[in-house]
């Protein structure tokens, strides 16, 4: 059996992109420990997802099937994954730090008596002395942690690990009944109110345009959205405007919101509170547009434009649209 078990995430039969980054992390771990990895996916009727996972070089892919897994709930998924991990004898359990990963992974650790390193950004050291780097204080400090238990659970920050690429080989895919004690479950999924958007999701987008209080009123957020759409990007926001109810909560970039690391991040009318910087400092190129030349956002921006956003943002949008032809 493989020493590393990756828990892949699916919803309604669709594989989460973040899981490819978890597989990427498992490959790094496998190289360091000289081991192999296996991928497990849980649900009801997930043979199709399991088949999609066959091309990434895993020693095996297993679909854990149970009626109680038709929709994600923490209790049932922790049982299915935890019981499988225990039976497989895996020494490392790897998951992406998505909202499902964050919700479920500690419960799996509890079932395995394992220590868990959460939201890690890299794996250092050699087999037997592995050290996991993870942000604390919203990324203002990077901690080095080691896990002292024989079994280790890690959740990985997707933006910091490469997505696994297809290897051209096919892993053996199997399905089995998940070990779930249905009688012990005391929670039910009721529904999901999806935020419908034609835009890429914040954490996947290669361009993010975010707006802040400098936009003065909710209607002006359209300027940010138009610029984002011109660039095929996602829309983000500072906590201040989320708190004011201008935009949905899941647009929030920052310590208490989403951590993003796109190729291009454009901050419009955002002063750059520590809280916000923590969520976007990892971006490759940062542009700040703000009329206050002393705004802290300029200290992290590669390109700063000190100007009235109401003039320059439409100009930028139009000129970028013209470039695209």
């Amino acid at each position: 059996m493989a020493d590393i078990l990756v828990l892949a995430e699916q919803q309604l039969g669709k594989l989460a992109k973040a899981s490819l980054h978890a597989i990427g992390a498992a490959k790094i771990l496998a190289e360091k420990t000289g081991g192999t990895f296996e991928i497990a996916v849980a649900g009801q009727g997930v043979a199709g997802v399991a088949a999609q996972l066959a091309g990434f070089g895993a020693a095996g892919v297993v679909a854990l099937e149970h009626d109680a897994l038709a929709q994600y709930t923490a209790q049932a998924y922790a049982q299915a994954f935890g019981n499988y991990a225990k039976a497989s004898g895996a020494r490392f359990v790897v998951t992406a730090a998505t909202s499902i990963g964050k919700d479920c992974a500690p419960r799996i650790a509890a079932r395995l008596g394992a220590g868990m390193a959460a939201d890690i950004i890299s794996i250092e050291g050699a087999a037997g002395a592995l050290v996991y780097r993870r942000p604390m204080w919203a990324g203002n400090v990077i901690a080095h942690v080691k896990v002292n238990t024989p079994t280790v659970v890690v959740s990985v920050r997707p933006t910091d690990f490469p997505a696994a690429e297809a290897t051209g080989t096919a892993s053996l895919v199997q399905s089995q009944a998940a070990s779930v004690d249905a009688g012990s479950l005391r929670m039910q999924y009721v529904g999901l109110e999806k935020v419908e958007s034609s835009r890429p999701s914040l954490t996947d987008a290669s361009v993010v345009v975010s707006g802040g209080r400098g936009l003065k009123e909710p209607a002006n957020f359209a300027l940010v959205e138009k610029l984002a759409d011109t660039l095929g990007g996602a829309v983000g926001a500072s906590r201040a405007v989320v708190d004011s109810g201008w935009v949905p909560n899941d647009w929030q970039v920052g310590q208490t919101g989403k951590v993003v690391a796109p190729k291009l991040y454009i901050a419009v009318g955002i002063s750059g509170a520590i809280q916000h910087l923590a969520g976007m400092k990892g971006s490759r190129t940062i542009v700040a547009i703000n009329k206050d030349a002393d705004a802290p956002i300029f200290q992290v921006a590669d390109y700063g434009l000190v100007a009235d956003l109401f003039g320059v943002v439409p100009e930028l949008t139009d000129k970028l649209a013209a470039r695209k032809g």
């Binding site: 999924y189 935020v195 999701s201 954490t203």
Partner: peptide, 12 residues
Amino acid sequence: EVDGGVETVQVS
């Protein structure tokens, strides 16, 4: 609050 929206669960 979950990725992509708001999920509702019922717990006892």
